[in-house]
Amino acid sequence: MGILSGNPKDEPLHYGEVFSVWTNLATNNGLIAGYQTFYNHAGDEDLKKIIEDIIQLLRDEVKPLEKVLKTNGVGLPPAPPERPVARIEDIPPGAKFNDPEISAALSVDLAAGLVACSQAMGTSTREDIALMYGQFHAAKALLGAKLLRLNKTKGWLVPPPLHVDYPEK
């Protein structure tokens, strides 16, 4: 039997897998704090629900990421503290994110998360790590679809120029 056969949990992580998992955990910790702040700024109830869903998704990802790192003797990245709940009325208008800005930032982050998951899947040699990222990818894609629908419904989507003039044949 070779080194990369048998139970994947008994195989060592390679440096790329360690970097992907550690970076993913550090990013999720930062995004959770940032999205808690976005939640305080959001006025639209549908947007607030999606923010809650994304925060929960990130928290659900943190657990297996921490477990992989701890099991393999890798130190965990620092995490910022939880953000307190604030009243939207207490945030000065010039310092407040508006709902379309929040939604756009969430959309960009989800898209970047999909790319990061795809890269982690593609570079993994351990099947359990690749499958974990496959699950993360699917969950992010579902939330991305919900956010796209919300952006269209609320009129927040700013599409690129549409190509409607077709060359004649």
Rank of each mutant, 00 (worst) to 15 (best):
G2R: 09
I3G: 08
I3C: 07
S5H: 12
N7L: 11
P8Q: 06
K9T: 11
K9F: 15
E11D: 13
E11L: 15
P12N: 08
P12K: 10
L13S: 08
H14Y: 07
E17H: 07
W22E: 04
W22M: 01
N24H: 13
L25R: 07
L25Y: 09
A26H: 10
A26Y: 10
N28P: 00
N28V: 01
G30W: 02
A33G: 08
T37Y: 13
N40P: 02
A42T: 13
D44L: 01
I50F: 03
I50E: 12
I51A: 08
E52T: 09
E52M: 02
I54S: 05
Q56V: 09
Q56T: 14
L57Q: 12
L57T: 05
L58V: 02
L58H: 14
R59K: 15
R59I: 06
R59F: 00
D60G: 06
E61W: 05
V62W: 03
K63E: 10
P64D: 11
E66T: 07
E66R: 13
L69I: 02
L69T: 02
L69H: 02
K70Q: 09
T71A: 09
V74C: 04
G75A: 14
L76E: 04
P77R: 00
P77N: 00
P78K: 11
P78R: 11
P80R: 06
P80E: 05
P81D: 13
E82W: 00
R83N: 08
P84D: 10
V85G: 06
A86S: 01
P92D: 14
P92F: 12
P93Y: 08
G94Y: 11
K96V: 09
N98C: 11
N98Q: 14
N98V: 15
D99V: 14
P100K: 11
I102Y: 11
S103E: 15
A105N: 15
L106G: 06
S107F: 12
S107C: 03
L110G: 01
A112R: 06
A112V: 00
A112S: 01
L114T: 05
V115L: 11
C117I: 01
S118G: 15
S118R: 12
Q119G: 05
T125Q: 15
T125R: 15
T125V: 13
R126F: 03
R126V: 03
E127S: 14
D128K: 04
D128V: 14
A130C: 03
A130P: 02
L131S: 01
M132G: 13
Y133M: 04
Q135E: 13
H137T: 00
A138Y: 02
A139N: 12
A141V: 00
A141M: 10
L142G: 06
G144A: 14
A145Q: 11
K146T: 06
K146Y: 08
L150C: 04
N151G: 10
K154Y: 01
W156P: 02
V158D: 11
P159L: 10
P159Y: 02
L162M: 09
V164W: 06
E168A: 09
E168N: 07
K169I: 09
K169S: 13
